[in-house]
Amino acid sequence: MVMVPFVAHGHLNQLVHLSRLISTYKIPVHFVTTTTHIRQVRSRFQDFSSHSAASNLIHFHEFRTPPFTSPQPNPSNRFPAHLQPAIDSSLHLRRPVTELIRSLSSTTKRVVVVHDSLMLYVVQNVKSIPNAVTYIFDPVSAFDTFWGAWERRSRPFPVDPGMLKRLPSSDGCFSPEFIDFVNLQIIAQDGSHVGELFDSSRVIEGEYLEYLEREQINGKKKFWAIGPLINHVDVDKSTFKVSNNRHKCLQWLDMLSQL
């Protein structure tokens, strides 16, 4: 398997956790991103050291991007626009990622590529590799994915008007430059992927996954809820206790993190 995350930690970390989960089934995983982000992953997750068991099944491939200059963060902006140069630099991964997948395809029967929904531009040439298939990984909720696709398609069918009224406006959430980057990904989406994976659960978001499946908002593809993807921690469950002082939602998340 080949993992192609987007170059932002909220996105990248989810595919790190998925890589670790897949590696427990003795399936080799090739994790592909920039040199900078590979270094940060290694510093954050100590079990990826050269002496760990995971290092035998999870292989990191780091690719350099052209130098860029990031402006200072502007706290008055809702969107971290200072990251845009780093985001744009990810477009240069298209060629090396394609070459890596092509090389892997020559030594194995099937290559499965799981890529962030914001890396469609980078993986668009994979469809030319006969024994490679791609799956889109949606790091955001099925709720968000549905509403975004529903709006892009000019609201093709009626939905709960009460929910529609409660949705906050997305105006000002994203910079014009980031919207251009997203549109580039949409243009690159040609429908050749097998389906979409969500870091979600049908218990939580079944309604919106069913919307996506029934109405085929994102094309006639399959959808899988494979989450929540969380960092596995080995603990003695008999001694684990949840503080009653925390909100019940946080207590629930505390319990999930120990499963």
Rank of each mutant, 00 (worst) to 15 (best):
G227H: 00
H17M: 07
V194S: 03
K165N: 08
L57F: 11
Q72P: 05
P28Q: 05
L57I: 04
A54V: 09
L15K: 06
R94E: 15
V41A: 03
Q185F: 01
W150E: 12
Q251I: 01
R202Q: 10
I58C: 03
V235G: 08
N218Y: 05
Y211H: 10
V111F: 01
R39D: 14
N77C: 12
W224P: 13
Q14E: 04
E215D: 08
S106N: 13
V113W: 03
L18K: 06
M255G: 04
P67M: 05
F48R: 11
L93Y: 10
E62G: 14
Q46T: 15
T36R: 09
S23M: 06
Q189M: 13
D88A: 03
H193E: 15
F181N: 09
P80S: 00
D144P: 00
V112Y: 02
P139N: 08
S55T: 04
K220D: 11
R20A: 09
G162N: 15
F198P: 04
S106V: 00
I179H: 02
R110M: 04
F79E: 08
H30W: 08
P168I: 03
K222G: 14
F79W: 07
V111M: 11
L104F: 07
Q40E: 12
Y211G: 05
L164G: 01
K127H: 04
R246G: 00
A8L: 09
G195P: 12
E99W: 02
D180W: 00
S192M: 06
T145H: 10
Y211M: 14
L184Q: 07
N245A: 09
F68L: 06
Q258S: 11
Q189H: 14
V123N: 03
